[in-house]
Design a protein around this nucleic acid. Structure first.
Length: 423
RNA sequence: GGAGAGGUGGCAGAGUGGUCGAAUGCGGCGGUCUCGAAAACCGUUGUCCGUCGUAAGAUGGACCGGGGGUUCGAAUCCCCCCCUCUCCGCCA
């Protein structure tokens, strides 16, 4: 949620910035300003009446105390009238406030100056590409075929037991998966992130705070009986750890990480892109989250992308860093870098990480604040990144490392797997 | 799931209808004292939204788990929900 203050002070600027996200905010902003004015004047009126009302009730109190019950009773009628007036004003006020909030919630975060304009992924900017693209023989297999050949992942079993998009990992495939998780968590911990094991379901407030609700309601699995949502990413529970908190200046930076399964309905995704591990309903991910001082958040964003790049280097996967354009970035983000690895058999770049600075957008929703040096309460900034999402890493590892003898395991993972080859 | 107890300021903890945003203690911050520190003493110490003000600040309103109700008046009484604790049941 964009702080109302910003909209009041520079509405035109907000409209211009949001245009980068292909969002026409003109009407909404004007309505917001109108409602804001109305709300304030109603509050002024209501506050004045409340003050009078309070005084009257206190007078009645002291009249009763001094035994002047008759006088007191005589005043009751006027108090009731006042009370009714206040009630009506309150109702109006709350009604406008609700409308105002409904509009505010519709506005996406303001994109940073570096965000390029554009409609979709074709307009993203490649920041750099790194690593050698392996040259596979003609008969190289895609990961879904390798999965079957080496009996390490079963999509059929997943379909039978649950449904499409819920694969089983098996034997060395399962071990490799677990090794990647451990490796990623160890790297995050080394980098100073505190490890959490979060709940896999969250309540409505949490889902709202990070921006999943009301916007992406249909993307989450919902447990109706208990009114809980399965998390689409550990970002949700992790960032919500600090919901409604006021941090001290010295608490920063706050760094958290977590491994979790992630659940996404992916309604509306079909076709080639969803083949194999490319797009799943349930997948594993290690997530890093930071809370930062506003002045430092973009520097921290760089620190986080560097962390991700370092992971990919260690896994010896060819990758590129991409700066998302306005049309491709998320509702909540101010600046996002994606990382894509090259999956050599599919001949495709696959997104394995998305690192974003949400500036004060999430913090505003969740009232995550801090006291600055002068003692003033301000909104913190929140950031997060995948470090990393497992399935596509797995896909690229299988495809890129296939040899006649089997799948080679990257060196950094061998201490975790205990084997260097899936034969 | 059943029975009971309870949710008050950063923490502990008083407050059971009126002047309570809320005693007191601890902690935090500022000061006195000190070579310095501790102790002692003094002062200060919540959040949100208005109004006035460039600002510092002044001032009004709201908030005692959340929502609703009773009453001229509610932290205090009633109802619903959420959460915590104790006991019983069930169980990885």
């Amino acid at each position: 949620m964009i702080p109302l203050q910003i909209i009041r002070e520079q509405p035109q600027w907000v409209i211009e910035r949001l245009a980068i996200k292909n969002f026409d905010a003109h009407d909404i902003i004007h309505q917001i300003l109108q409602f804001d004015q109305q709300r304030k004047s109603i509050q002024f009126e209501s506050d004045e009446k409340s003050a009078e009302y309070k005084k009257l009730t206190q007078e009645i109190g002291s009249l009763f105390k001094s035994g002047q019950a008759n006088k007191a009773n005589a005043q009751k009628e006027e108090v009731s009238r006042k009370k009714e007036e206040i009630r009506i004003l309150q109702e109006k006020h709350d009604d406008i406030l609700q409308k105002l909030n409904e509009l505010l919630v519709k506005l996406p975060n303001i994109p940073d100056e570096r965000v390029p304009p554009g409609k979709g992924s074709a307009d993203n900017e490649i920041v750099f590409t790194e690593g050698d693209i392996p040259h596979l023989p003609e008969d190289a297999l895609c990961h879904w075929d390798l999965a079957t050949k080496y009996d390490i992942i079963s999509f059929e079993l997943g379909s039978k037991v649950t449904g499409a998009g819920f694969p089983f990992y098996k034997g060395k495939g399962a071990k490799l998966q677990r090794s990647l998780i451990s490796f990623f968590l160890d790297e995050a911990t080394k980098a100073g992130y505190i490890e959490y094991e979060p709940p896999l379901m969250v309540n409505e407030d949490s889902a709202f705070a990070t921006g999943q609700l009301p916007d992406k309601e249909g993307q989450m699995y919902y447990v109706a009986l208990d009114n809980l949502y399965l998390i689409p990413t550990a970002e949700v529970p992790l960032t919500n750890v600090y919901r409604e908190e006021i941090l001290k200046y010295s608490d920063f930076p706050v760094k958290l990480c977590a491994y979790s399964s992630c659940f996404r309905r992916e309604a509306g995704s079909y076709g080639k892109d969803v083949r194999g591990l490319n797009r799943l309903h349930q997948f594993d991910k290690v997530e890093i989250v930071q809370l930062s001082l506003p002045e430092q958040s973009f520097r921290i964003l760089d620190e986080m992308t560097e962390h991700v790049a370092h992971l990919l280097r260690q896994l010896k996967l060819p990758f590129r860093q991409v700066r998302l354009c306005g049309g491709d970035m998320s509702f909540t983000s101010a600046l996002t870098y994606d990382f894509e690895v090259f999956s050599a058999a599919q001949q495709k770049w696959l997104e394995v990480s998305s690192v974003s600075n949400f500036t004060e957008f999430q913090a505003n929703r969740m009232k995550l604040r801090f006291k600055d040096e002068t003692g003033k309460t301000r909104l913190a900034h929140t950031l997060n990144g995948s470090a990393l999402a497992l399935p596509r890493i797995m896909a690229a590892l299988l495809e890129n490392n296939q040899t006649l003898e089997g799948i080679r395991i990257p060196e950094v993972l061998i201490p975790y797997t205990g084997f260097d080859l899936i034969p």
